[in-house]
């Protein structure tokens, strides 16, 4: 293990993995309980549009994706609650985001190798400079969630009651959507656009099997995320398979094992994250 860690790219990969796990663990439980998984998928794919535009403009793709996704999140949260067509809109966004990305990459002269990294993810190529940006993004997600924890839990638990208690529900919803957008951008670095959803949901699903208390689910999600990332990375190193896919498969296997152990030994119905509404 020591020899693996002596490589700088491995150190970077580890740090990226840990930060991604923290982001997932903090925002994931909100995404799952507020049923925002599909919206997160839409934002993730919209990010690809931002990447394409940034590439064409010749600026750092991560900046492009961040700005683009934040704009989309702001628009989405304004639409939410005002129309039941949200689902439809997210589906369209999903497709159009990718299309915009492809068009702009096509228009950019020369081959764009970095974009493949964004599509499928390669945690092993995360440069030191991106680690710094990731750290900033991680803090930008974690700090608001921690300071405004009561408010975010209120809108996830009972939005109407929060309104009756005069909480700024619309602002909180917009804020949460922005944080999801930031989380998505952070995660794209690690596992790629296609696998972001898995990293936002699998650790939460595992944590939901282990606890029925939101705070603990958050903490367990972070720990599960770190474990999945580390195990996935080592497997990717020793078996020489792509790292993003390796991390996700590890997570899926881990989730499967926890579910089966619970089923065979405890016979408890799955709860918190499995079926959100009766």
């Amino acid at each position: 293990m020591q020899s693996i860690l002596s490589y700088e790219f491995m150190q970077n990969a580890l740090m990226a993995g840990i930060m991604a796990s923290i982001v997932c663990g903090v925002i994931g439980p909100f995404i799952v309980t507020k049923r925002m998984v599909f919206i997160s998928g839409g934002l993730t794919h919209a990010a690809f549009g931002g990447l394409g535009i940034a590439y064409w403009l010749g600026i750092r793709p991560l900046y492009g994706a961040t700005v683009f996704v934040l704009c989309i999140a702001a628009i989405l949260s304004r639409l939410e609650g005002r129309t039941d067509k949200n689902d439809l809109f997210v589906g369209i966004l999903w497709a159009v985001g990718v299309a915009i990305g492809i068009i702009f990459i096509h228009m950019t002269p020369g081959y764009a190798p970095d974009l493949m990294t964004f599509l499928f993810g390669n945690i092993l190529t995360v440069p030191r400079s991106d680690i710094v940006i990731m750290l900033i993004l991680t803090l930008a997600v974690v700090v608001p969630i921690v300071t405004c924890y009561k408010g975010f839990v209120s809108i996830a638990l009972d939005e109407e009651y929060a309104r009756a208690r005069q909480l700024p529900v619309n602002a909180l919803n917009t804020g949460l959507m922005m944080l999801v957008a930031l989380a998505v951008v952070t995660l794209i670095q690690v596992v790629g656009i296609i696998l972001v959803i898995a990293l936002l949901t699998i650790p939460v699903a595992i944590a939901g099997e282990l606890s029925l208390i939101f705070r603990r689910i958050m903490l367990l999600s972070i720990l599960c995320g770190i474990m999945i990332c580390l195990t996935g990375l080592s497997l990717s190193y020793s078996l020489e398979v792509p790292s993003g896919a390796s991390i996700i498969i590890t997570g899926a296997v881990f989730l499967g094992s926890v579910k089966s152990i619970k089923y065979f030994f405890f016979r408890r119905r799955s709860t918190a994250t499995g079926e959100m509404h009766p």
Binding site: T33, S154, A156, L157, D158, E160, M276, H277
Partner: peptide, 22 residues
């Protein structure tokens, strides 16, 4: 009208009635 399967304890749920805009 609310998320009945939200993972929260009885006392935290009751406590959330204290939350207000202020």
């Amino acid at each position: 009208s609310f998320n009945r399967n939200f993972p929260i304890t009885v006392s935290e749920m009751a406590l959330s009635g204290c939350i207000s805009g202020r």
